[in-house]
Nucleic acid binder design. Sequence first.
RNA 1: GGUCGCAUAGCUCAGUUGGUAGAGCACUACGUUCACAUCGUAGGGGUCACAGGUUCAAGUCCUGUUGCGACCACCA
Length: 746
Amino acid sequence: MFELIDKTYNPKSFERDVYEKTVQFFEPYEKAGDVFVIMMPPPNVTGKLHVGHSLTYMIQDILIRYYRQKGRKVLWQPGIDHAGIATQMVVERTLEEKGIKKSDMSREEFINVIWEWKEKSGGLIAEQQKLLGCSAPWNRSRFTMDESMNRAVRHAFVRLYKDGLIYRDKRFVNWDTKFKTAISDLEIVNKEEKGILWHIKYNFSDGSGHITVATTRPETMFGDTAVAVHPNDERYKNFIGKMVKIPFTNREIPVIADEYVDMEKGSGCLKITPAHDHNDFMVGKRHNLEIINILDEDGHMENFEYVPEFIRGIYLKKARKEVLERLKSENLLIKEEEITHSMPYGDRSNTVIEPLLKEQWFVDAKTLSVEALRAVQNKITRFIPEKWENTYYDWLNNIQPWCISRQIVWGHQIPAWFTERGDIIVEETEEEAKRIGGPNIRRDTDVLDTWFSSALWPFATLGWPENTPDLKEFFPTSVLVTGFDIIFFWIARMMMMSLYFMREVPFRDIYIHALVRDEKGQKMSKSKGNVLDPIELMEEYGADALRFTLAFFSVPGRDIKIGKEHIKISRNFITKIWNAARFLQHKNVSFEHNIKDLSPKSHLNKWVIAKLKKFQEEVDLNIKEYRFDYLAKNIQIFLRETFCDFFIEALKIVDTEETKNTAGAVFQEFLRIAHPVIPFVTDHLAQILGITDTFINKSGVHVNELPNHEESERTVDQLIERIHVERSSGDISLESFSEELKKLGC
RNA sequence: GGUCGCAUAGCUCAGUUGGUAGAGCACUACGUUCACAUCGUAGGGGUCACAGGUUCAAGUCCUGUUGCGACCACCA
């Protein structure tokens, strides 16, 4: 007959095998049902699977497997993101380890090195996703820098430009002095830190004393074009309109009055450096001040016309030290005040971001945001949980122009050319650009923000701008599953781009899941050493145990705290399923019967079918409502309390043919229902038990096909209740229990 | 400064239209009698953060307070 189930549950021995046997079903294929589509958020090409990934992909896989079972035509579009700055960083570091400097290479050579690296290491995460059980059609996988994606990106850029929604402008950008590129507002993280507020003497030109300026950035004084006080500040009222001299260079600047100045802060007197501070820039604009830039792209002091000799060409931090020393020795430094303030850092470079006035490419996000807002307000796309709508609205309502140009090499090069006269030509191809601008045009070397291509993901992966059959069939998608951390980076931008180019929302539902933290609730990070490696966990406890745990803890609106212990508990539960199967096999239970055809006579069997029906209804609801925690709990309760604790125990006493057939049929249905959450063990057991249909693409019996057995359910529930009471009062009689059961079992 | 969330057993958390407080882990005791010690059975343990209010009835709804967290903004 069939092989015996091993005594011990050893997931390692069969998981890979089970996966490979079912790979053929991962492609979308023709079915009567509607399509169900999820765009897999593409992990970074540099990525390694972490627990957070496991959660997000596991949830998607549950949905995919569930709807595939239900007969829907399912597409789970996988892919990889080129992750511009992050990848360039990683590759640069590997080069440095080999003693090679990026600066020794041409742009083309360096790009080639990255591509080589991508070909070699970029497939790692997909292999790890397979270990987790992700049932995606991998041969459809897209890379955000594929030729087809590149085509889509160029097309999108050109259209937005010609429609006036992409433009070139000189304005403040966040300048990363380490990578020498502009970054978007979102790529900044603010860090609280201790700093010093220096009070500095600026002498009046007429020799009538001084005014005290407070600043945290004394080195920028050479770019000052005014000193500002509050118009109502009695202390300084008489000084307004006078001229002061900047130390060392003695350039003269006026004292001006502006409401922006806070009398309470610092000395109440503020130096205005329009080129290096957003607010100063605004003040400068109001007062028609000159804008003097004194920093170069690496953060060194430049503009020698204004910067004194002793700090020329020096990095700003060092320049600050030098300036302070000079101030001290010349008795211009009045006091040092310790303060805490937050400073902007680049999320990748971890260096202080300088606001610099630069010419960059921008997207008019304000205009695009209108439709994106409306779509959610009108519930065409809904957030689950709903509260994230507010986050989304807040950001879109206050949206700023999106700086999309990056001065790095790894990314989609902007399809713009400059003529010798400095005119800009934006076209999809070089040929077209040359046709317009002549042969001597020069292409912009900037590349696009990685999120620009990501924003096109839901339709670009399906063949857009071509109107392909895939695009027609699979767009818009059913649900986007992701964490709240990329609502701005990605979700909002996909909404904007989809609505602009496709005139449709990219997805109906947005399911926002929790963040995974360690047992103590701390963010997992390498430096803290509290990172749980999902690969190790799967190795030790099996992919199903990891999946089950993550589902079990994914309560909406609360972060997931897990440790190894939790995975172990899930593994123990799966062992319980395993042993239930062993028992049924041991009892020679048949799995050939379909539960629909059973029509049992006994209350016991009718009862278990009624419970199964309820379980099924619950599960359907849980999936619909994205309650994966309930889903896992329901699986556990049904198997443990209904099936093992009572039904199997009863089966030991009344092992009639009817009861055994019911056991086989019910267990089989259970395996099917649990399959989306724990695909490996369920499929494996099915194979051994000789259940001929594969679970992956066949749903079990529909809830409506199961009869109602409410009376039997009540009868047996009452019996169970009585047993509990008798047991707790101590006078349990096994014989009377058996008698009762036999009555129910006839 | 703005927004949102959380506070229930020693720990991690459920509690889905208000109706006698739940699970798992941990703990205690018992148990290896046809799956399962990666287990089973039983047990102890909670003023549901605090203060008001609505209600016949509040963990659940409303107001306020405290503590914790996240995000956004500002940041001389």
